[in-house]
């Protein structure tokens, strides 16, 4: 109200009150619902369309073996994308000021290097696993401190940490491949029941556990509240900063786990972990369109990890240059982010 009203006669007030409120049912809400529905439907249609095109053009595409293959190949990026999803849920999905963890791929690289170095130094798998997980957690803690204590936006804080971590990896490995092999590692990279790789089962199991926590417990619900509307979370008595810090710890841990998986997949630690960043960001952002409310979800992220995996796999089967894949992934980010941002803007209007 523009006018600061010291006193209004009651009659005028009532008229004011009645005039100010138009019929309650608003059509913008309906339009938004429709647009959200179209986006979700469109995403699923594209997913199915891609599957159909590839299965028609590439002979082995829709075999159990190939699907298992894709799942196994997506395990590392899938675990990382789940970590990123947790950060996005707790930080909000604003692309600039919201939650993002750019250090995840580098985290995986360093954790893998730590694992491989420890293994090479003669330590057992238990120590190496612990080393990788602690490395990941420590990186997460640095991110959490920079963001919640120093108040740096996640985009910048994790960008800086990414570079520090990548540098540490170079120092540790002297930019070389550190081979590692053990029974534990070969068991991870072996084929499992139904000829599907063990890594695929690990991805499914991990998704199940995290999804149970994030989608089905009070903790998860509060995580969403903190990210979507911090003021409301605060008013509900939730410690907002602890939740945000916790999300970075969780994603750091995901980085450590992904490091272990990558050591087993590649039989050692290799350079170039940073290349993983783009597919991970695509996967986490794309996951949003697979949920009813257009929010990031763990199951949505699994679906989009599979989508990205199938896309890469299909390109390989059709002998299309893999250099195109990055371009397609970049395009996907643009599409998804602009679609969800436009929807969000409509909601606020």
């Amino acid at each position: 109200m523009l006018v600061d009203v010291p006193y209004i006669p009651a009659t005028a007030l009532e008229v004011e009150a009645q005039r100010a409120f138009e019929p309650a049912r608003t059509s913008p809400a309906f339009a938004r619902r429709l647009a959200a529905l179209a986006l979700r439907g469109g995403a699923l249609a594209v997913f199915l369309g891609v599957l159909i095109v590839f299965s028609v053009t590439a002979p082995f595409f829709l075999t159990v073996g190939n699907i298992g293959n894709v799942l196994g190949q997506s395990a590392i990026s899938g675990v990382l994308a789940i970590g990123l999803t947790i950060v996005i849920i707790a930080g909000g999905s604003n692309v600039v000021t919201g939650g993002i963890d750019l250090s995840l791929a580098a985290n995986m690289g360093l954790s893998a290097a730590v694992y491989a170095s420890l293994a090479q130094a003669g330590h057992g798998d238990g120590v190496a696993v612990l080393g990788a997980l602690v490395t990941g957690l420590a990186i997460g803690a640095v991110n959490a401190a920079a963001i919640t204590l120093a108040g740096i936006v996640p985009l910048l804080a994790t960008l800086a940490v990414m570079n520090v971590v990548a540098g540490l990896e170079l120092v540790l490995t002297q930019n070389t491949v550190v081979p590692a092999s053990s029974e534990f590692l070969s068991a991870l990279s072996a084929g499992g029941p139904l000829g599907i790789p063990v890594l695929a089962y690990i991805l499914l199991g991990f998704t199940l556990v995290v999804a149970a926590i994030v989608q089905y417990t009070p903790l998860g619900l509060r995580l969403y509240a903190v990210g979507a509307f911090p003021d409301a979370a605060r008013a509900a008595g939730l410690p907002v900063r602890s939740f945000v810090a916790g999300s970075f710890l969780a994603s750091g841990l995901c980085g450590g786990l992904a490091g272990i998986l990558s050591v087993s997949y590649l039989s050692g630690s290799t350079t170039g972990a940073g290349d993983m960043l783009l597919p991970v960001v695509v996967t986490a952002l794309l996951g949003t369109v697979f949920s009813r409310r257009l929010v990031p979800t763990i199951t949505g992220t699994l679906l989009s990890a599979l989508f990205v995996g199938f896309l890469v796999n299909g390109f390989q089967l059709l002998n299309i240059s893999s250099t195109l894949v990055s371009g397609v992934q970049g395009l996907l980010i643009l599409l998804v982010v602009s679609a969800t941002t436009l929807l969000g803007r409509k909601e606020n209007a």
Partner: peptide, 17 residues
């Protein structure tokens, strides 16, 4: 102060689910 992406039930019980 209600989370826009929550259902009515979730918004009502947030914090004491």
């Amino acid at each position: 102060l209600l989370v826009p992406t929550f259902t009515v039930g979730e918004a009502l019980f947030l914090g004491r689910e």
